[in-house]
């Protein structure tokens, strides 16, 4: 068979191109890249929070709801992270996919020390935009430049969040 070098080269290039794009896409889907989608939501005390307004510090956006048991279990970890890092280094925003009333009751009962944004509808839309698969808890860590560094579906394990924040915020 007169298999010329060109055919081999072309076949190789085609395979490599498919592999490269598959790999890139996979990594993008998994690790996230690009700027995080901006949002502007009020917390249950009426203060506005705009994601782009927090440029210059890390932001941990946590999607949760009072009716979601694994989400509730994660809240103490987030509260500890809040206490451990200075506010100008790390902002934690809890986006509740429940109404304001339920969210407030929860906040008061647990003494949550970071802003809780009650956003039933807008929250679910954001959740979809960030490739969560529609499940909570879901967390996104955004760096000082507003780029997504990390996503997590399901609750953080005890040491996991601490480790992640130490590595990223150093």
């Amino acid at each position: 068979m007169s298999l010329s070098g060109l055919v081999k080269a072309v076949a190789f290039a085609a395979v490599a191109a498919v592999a490269l794009s598959a790999g890139h896409h996979l990594s993008r889907a998994h690790f996230g890249d690009g700027a995080a989608r901006n949002f502007q939501l009020a917390d249950i005390d009426g203060r506005m929070h705009e994601l782009n307004g927090y440029r210059g510090r890390f932001v941990l956006v946590n999607f949760w709801a009072p009716w979601c048991a694994p989400c509730r279990e994660e809240v103490p970890l987030l509260m500890r992270a809040r206490a451990r890092h200075r506010e100008k280094d790390l902002q934690i925003l809890g986006i509740s996919l429940d109404g304001e009333e339920n969210t407030r009751i929860f906040r008061d009962e647990f003494g949550v020390n970071y802003p809780l944004l009650a956003a039933a509808n807008a929250g679910s839309r954001l959740l979809g935009a960030w490739q969560s698969g529609g499940a909570i808890p879901f967390s996104v860590l955004i760096d000082r430049a507003g780029r997504i560094r990390h996503r997590k579906s399901g609750a953080y394990a005890a040491g996991e969040l601490q480790e992640l924040l130490r590595a990223e915020l150093r």
């Binding site: 076949a11 190789f12 395979v15 490599a16 498919v18 592999a19 490269l20 598959a22 790999g23 890139h24 996979l26 990594s27 993008r28 998994h30 690790f31 890249d33």
Partner: peptide, 28 residues
């Protein structure tokens, strides 16, 4: 075989490029 190897290599390189760490790639 060579093609498959090329595929695997290119795939791994790009998948790992953004975050580094084989563990993450395997997870993906």
């Amino acid at each position: 075989k060579k093609l498959l190897a090329a595929f695997a290599a290119a795939f791994t390189v790009t998948a790992a490029a953004q975050d580094g760490g084989l563990g993450d790639v395997l997870g993906a």
